[in-house]
Design a binder for these strands. Structure first.
Ligand code: ZN
Ligand code: ZN
Ligand code: ZN
Ligand code: ZN
Lengths: 129, 129
DNA sequence: ATGCACCCTGAAGCCACTATAGGGTCAAGC
DNA sequence: GCTTGACCCTATAGTGGCTTCAGGGTGCAT
């Protein structure tokens, strides 16, 4: 597999794959005579794991930790679950913050009666008073 | 007012105030003999406006636009409202994405029965198969 | 004179990529 | 055998919105 194949199979940009390699998330693959990267199934599996973790919102440092943990098949999964619980809490906090924003913006938009800037409730809410 | 006073009054870090100046969001203030920045009420008002806009989730480019619009007191506030509506839509999209994440993480955590890594539902969900 | 809180500049670092410049490789078609 | 075009390579810089750091200077009290 060349890098473009891996890209298509995982929905990851070519540049991102090279970036993951530089960051040590994916082992450097072997090369062809023309200096092209050649990947195998293990690379594909690892990149898929990384992408799914990123899709769940884990940071690259958390992904590194998850990759390490996933190798240790016989250990208890407590650490994995703790990472996931932490991520869930962080997502829930972000949702709450955004919902507060949503309420405030919606309320301002609702109050504005399409007049001039001088009477605009949104500008009024931003300006100090 | 010195920069530290402005910082305390607005809850903005000193470095952030200097950053806003460099970005052209706040006009460069006059200086004392010892080269300290001196701010007045107009600076305080402008920084407050910026911070409230940021708290509502507007980007610095949007803040720039809002500041420009807010000067033009007699114009219709249509452009302001459109920025706010756009921001509301963006917030709502983010909430939906995060709620999907929340459901997925919660479901995985719920399925995991605290065994070994080999049986962990979370690792299983990440690994390709 | 010394300490200490505060201020200054300029540059680099953070995250997770993305983009750009300036090239090289390889198979197909003429 | 030469060109075209899709693909690949490296190295570097840019994104947003700051934060941190290095290496100083200022100003007031003791
Ligand atoms: Zn990094
Ligand atoms: Zn309005
Ligand atoms: Zn588990
Ligand atoms: Zn920037």
């Amino acid at each position: 597999m060349k890098i473009g194949d891996l890209s298509r199979l995982t929905g990851t940009r070519v540049e991102t794959i090279r970036f993951y390699e530089k960051e040590g998330l994916i082992p450097a693959p072997s090369r062809t005579g023309g200096n092209y990267r050649v990947y195998d199934q293990a690379h594909l599996n690892r990149l898929s794991f990384i992408r799914r973790s990123r899709d769940l919102g884990f940071t690259l440092d958390q992904v590194r930790a998850l990759l390490d943990l996933s190798d240790d098949r016989l250990r208890s999964c407590g650490a994995v679950d703790e990472l996931a619980r932490e991520q869930l809490r962080s997502v829930e906090r972000k949702i709450e913050d955004l919902q507060a924003l949503q309420r405030e913006l919606a309320s301002l938009l609702n109050q504005c009666s399409q007049g001039t800037i001088a009477e605009c409730r949104i500008i009024e809410a931003l300006a100090p008073g």
